[in-house]
Protein backbone atom coordinates (compact mmCIF):
# COMPACT_ATOMS: atom_id res chain seq x y z
CA UNK A 1 0.00 0.00 0.00
CA UNK A 2 1.15 3.52 -0.65
CA UNK A 3 2.54 5.40 2.33
CA UNK A 4 0.48 8.28 3.61
CA UNK A 5 1.79 11.32 1.82
CA UNK A 6 -0.45 13.91 3.42
CA UNK A 7 2.29 15.52 5.50
CA UNK A 8 5.02 15.66 2.86
CA UNK A 9 5.97 18.53 0.60
CA UNK A 10 5.79 18.10 -3.19
CA UNK A 11 9.57 17.72 -3.34
CA UNK A 12 9.57 15.06 -0.61
CA UNK A 13 6.90 13.13 -2.46
CA UNK A 14 9.30 12.91 -5.34
CA UNK A 15 12.34 11.84 -3.34
CA UNK A 16 10.93 8.81 -1.53
CA UNK A 17 12.70 5.59 -2.49
CA UNK A 18 11.53 4.41 -5.83
CA UNK A 19 8.85 1.70 -5.87
CA UNK A 20 7.45 0.43 -9.06
CA UNK A 21 4.50 -1.52 -7.80
CA UNK A 22 1.26 -0.52 -6.10
CA UNK A 23 -0.62 -3.38 -4.45
CA UNK A 24 1.34 -5.84 -6.50
CA UNK A 25 0.59 -4.24 -9.87
CA UNK A 26 3.65 -3.28 -11.87
CA UNK A 27 3.51 0.38 -12.75
CA UNK A 28 5.23 -0.16 -16.08
CA UNK A 29 2.27 -2.28 -17.17
CA UNK A 30 -0.28 0.06 -15.66
CA UNK A 31 1.22 3.10 -17.40
CA UNK A 32 1.50 1.23 -20.68
CA UNK A 33 -2.14 0.37 -20.30
CA UNK A 34 -3.10 4.00 -19.69
CA UNK A 35 -0.98 5.19 -22.62
CA UNK A 36 -3.38 3.53 -25.04
CA UNK A 37 -2.96 5.21 -28.40
CA UNK A 38 -0.82 8.09 -27.11
CA UNK A 39 2.47 8.34 -28.95
CA UNK A 40 5.92 8.47 -27.35
CA UNK A 41 7.61 11.80 -26.71
CA UNK A 42 6.94 15.00 -24.87
CA UNK A 43 3.63 15.87 -26.53
CA UNK A 44 2.01 12.96 -24.72
CA UNK A 45 3.29 13.92 -21.27
CA UNK A 46 0.39 16.09 -20.11
CA UNK A 47 -2.35 13.77 -21.46
CA UNK A 48 -0.60 10.80 -19.81
CA UNK A 49 -0.26 12.60 -16.48
CA UNK A 50 -3.98 13.39 -16.73
CA UNK A 51 -4.83 9.74 -17.33
CA UNK A 52 -2.64 8.58 -14.43
CA UNK A 53 -4.23 11.17 -12.16
CA UNK A 54 -7.73 10.21 -13.15
CA UNK A 55 -6.87 6.57 -12.37
CA UNK A 56 -5.30 7.15 -8.94
CA UNK A 57 -6.70 10.56 -7.96
CA UNK A 58 -3.13 11.91 -7.89
CA UNK A 59 0.30 11.13 -9.32
CA UNK A 60 1.82 8.45 -7.09
CA UNK A 61 5.62 8.57 -6.89
CA UNK A 62 5.61 4.94 -8.03
CA UNK A 63 4.27 5.84 -11.48
CA UNK A 64 6.90 8.44 -12.33
CA UNK A 65 9.70 6.11 -13.38
CA UNK A 66 7.26 4.26 -15.58
CA UNK A 67 6.03 7.51 -17.18
CA UNK A 68 9.59 8.64 -17.75
CA UNK A 69 10.48 5.29 -19.37
CA UNK A 70 7.35 5.17 -21.49
CA UNK A 71 7.88 8.63 -22.98
CA UNK A 72 11.69 8.58 -22.95
CA UNK A 73 12.07 11.78 -20.97
CA UNK A 74 13.83 12.25 -17.64
CA UNK A 75 12.07 12.01 -14.29
CA UNK A 76 13.13 15.55 -13.47
CA UNK A 77 11.30 16.79 -16.55
CA UNK A 78 8.20 14.90 -15.49
CA UNK A 79 8.49 16.57 -12.09
CA UNK A 80 8.97 19.98 -13.72
CA UNK A 81 5.76 19.67 -15.70
CA UNK A 82 3.74 18.03 -12.92
CA UNK A 83 4.52 20.86 -10.51
CA UNK A 84 3.92 23.65 -13.04
CA UNK A 85 0.24 22.91 -13.59
CA UNK A 86 -2.14 23.32 -10.69
CA UNK A 87 -4.31 20.39 -11.80
CA UNK A 88 -1.67 17.82 -10.87
CA UNK A 89 -1.48 16.56 -7.32
CA UNK A 90 1.49 14.73 -5.89
CA UNK A 91 -0.31 13.92 -2.67
CA UNK A 92 -3.28 11.69 -2.22
CA UNK A 93 -6.45 13.80 -1.95
CA UNK A 94 -9.04 13.32 0.78
CA UNK A 95 -12.23 11.30 0.50
CA UNK A 96 -14.15 14.50 -0.23
CA UNK A 97 -12.82 17.55 -2.02
CA UNK A 98 -14.21 21.05 -1.72
CA UNK A 99 -13.25 23.44 -4.48
CA UNK A 100 -14.15 27.01 -3.68
CA UNK A 101 -14.23 29.35 -6.65
CA UNK A 102 -12.04 32.39 -6.14
CA UNK A 103 -12.93 34.10 -9.41
CA UNK A 104 -13.67 37.82 -9.29
CA UNK A 105 -17.43 37.49 -9.27
CA UNK A 106 -17.42 34.82 -6.56
CA UNK A 107 -14.92 36.85 -4.56
CA UNK A 108 -17.03 40.02 -4.61
CA UNK A 109 -20.11 38.02 -3.68
CA UNK A 110 -18.70 36.21 -0.67
CA UNK A 111 -16.48 33.36 -1.92
CA UNK A 112 -13.74 34.41 0.47
CA UNK A 113 -16.08 33.99 3.41
CA UNK A 114 -17.01 30.48 2.27
CA UNK A 115 -13.33 29.61 2.03
CA UNK A 116 -12.68 30.89 5.57
CA UNK A 117 -15.68 28.95 6.76
CA UNK A 118 -14.31 25.64 5.45
CA UNK A 119 -10.85 26.44 6.80
CA UNK A 120 -12.31 27.04 10.28
CA UNK A 121 -14.86 24.24 10.23
CA UNK A 122 -12.69 21.45 8.88
CA UNK A 123 -9.25 22.67 9.93
CA UNK A 124 -7.80 22.39 6.47
CA UNK A 125 -5.93 24.97 4.41
CA UNK A 126 -6.30 25.39 0.63
CA UNK A 127 -4.17 22.80 -1.18
CA UNK A 128 -4.14 20.52 1.86
CA UNK A 129 -5.90 17.45 3.18
CA UNK A 130 -7.05 16.82 6.75
CA UNK A 131 -4.80 14.47 8.71
CA UNK A 132 -7.56 11.83 8.85
CA UNK A 133 -7.59 11.87 5.03
CA UNK A 134 -11.25 12.85 4.90
CA UNK A 135 -11.33 16.31 3.37
CA UNK A 136 -9.28 18.24 0.84
CA UNK A 137 -9.74 21.91 0.11
CA UNK A 138 -8.79 23.79 -3.04
CA UNK A 139 -9.21 27.46 -3.83
CA UNK A 140 -9.64 27.44 -7.60
CA UNK A 141 -9.47 30.11 -10.26
CA UNK A 142 -12.71 30.99 -12.01
CA UNK A 143 -15.04 28.10 -12.84
CA UNK A 144 -16.81 30.30 -15.40
CA UNK A 145 -20.09 30.11 -13.58
CA UNK A 146 -20.08 33.74 -12.50
CA UNK A 147 -23.81 34.31 -12.90
CA UNK A 148 -24.47 31.82 -10.09
CA UNK A 149 -21.73 33.05 -7.78
CA UNK A 150 -20.50 32.24 -5.26
CA UNK A 151 -19.94 28.66 -6.38
CA UNK A 152 -18.50 25.64 -4.62
CA UNK A 153 -17.70 22.28 -6.19
CA UNK A 154 -18.08 19.34 -3.82
CA UNK A 155 -16.82 16.05 -5.28
CA UNK A 156 -17.32 17.19 -8.88
CA UNK A 157 -20.86 18.50 -8.34
CA UNK A 158 -21.16 22.23 -8.84
CA UNK A 159 -23.36 24.28 -6.48
CA UNK A 160 -24.38 27.84 -7.30
CA UNK A 161 -25.49 30.76 -5.09
CA UNK A 162 -23.95 29.16 -2.01
CA UNK A 163 -24.49 30.92 1.32
CA UNK A 164 -22.72 30.25 4.65
CA UNK A 165 -25.81 28.34 5.79
CA UNK A 166 -26.14 26.13 2.69
CA UNK A 167 -22.42 25.42 2.95
CA UNK A 168 -22.88 24.51 6.59
CA UNK A 169 -25.59 22.02 5.67
CA UNK A 170 -23.35 20.52 2.96
CA UNK A 171 -20.62 20.04 5.56
CA UNK A 172 -22.88 18.62 8.26
CA UNK A 173 -24.48 16.24 5.77
CA UNK A 174 -21.00 14.82 5.03
CA UNK A 175 -20.13 14.60 8.72
CA UNK A 176 -23.40 12.96 9.73
CA UNK A 177 -23.26 10.66 6.74
CA UNK A 178 -19.93 9.28 7.89
CA UNK A 179 -21.18 8.80 11.48
CA UNK A 180 -24.08 6.75 10.19
CA UNK A 181 -21.75 4.32 8.43
Amino acid sequence: MINSSAQKTDAECFTVPQHTTIMGITMDDKVKDLMGSLGRGRGSLIPLLQRVQSEFGYLPRETVAAISDALVISESEVYGVATFYSEFKLKKPGEHTFKVCMGTSCYVSGGGTLLSQIIRRLGVRPGETTSDGKYSLDAVACLGCCSQSPTVVLDDVIHGNVTPSTLESMISELENGSEAL
Binding site: R42, G43, I46, S86, F88
Partner: peptide
Protein backbone atom coordinates in the same frame (compact mmCIF):
# COMPACT_ATOMS: atom_id res chain seq x y z
CA UNK B 1 -8.58 18.30 -28.31
CA UNK B 2 -5.83 19.24 -25.88
CA UNK B 3 -7.02 19.55 -22.32
CA UNK B 4 -5.32 22.24 -20.26
CA UNK B 5 -4.01 21.43 -16.82
CA UNK B 6 -4.72 24.54 -14.82
CA UNK B 7 -2.36 27.38 -15.65
CA UNK B 8 -3.71 30.85 -16.38
CA UNK B 9 -0.59 31.83 -18.31
CA UNK B 10 -1.39 29.17 -20.96
CA UNK B 11 -3.96 31.59 -22.41
CA UNK B 12 -0.92 33.48 -23.75
CA UNK B 13 -0.23 32.06 -27.20
CA UNK B 14 3.44 31.14 -26.89
CA UNK B 15 2.81 29.56 -23.47
CA UNK B 16 -0.16 27.68 -24.89
CA UNK B 17 2.01 26.20 -27.63
CA UNK B 18 4.67 25.19 -25.09
CA UNK B 19 1.93 23.42 -23.17
CA UNK B 20 0.72 21.50 -26.24
CA UNK B 21 4.33 20.47 -26.79
CA UNK B 22 4.26 18.94 -23.30
CA UNK B 23 6.42 21.54 -21.60
CA UNK B 24 5.92 23.89 -18.69
CA UNK B 25 3.60 26.56 -20.10
Amino acid sequence: IKEGAGAFVCGEETALMASIEGKRG
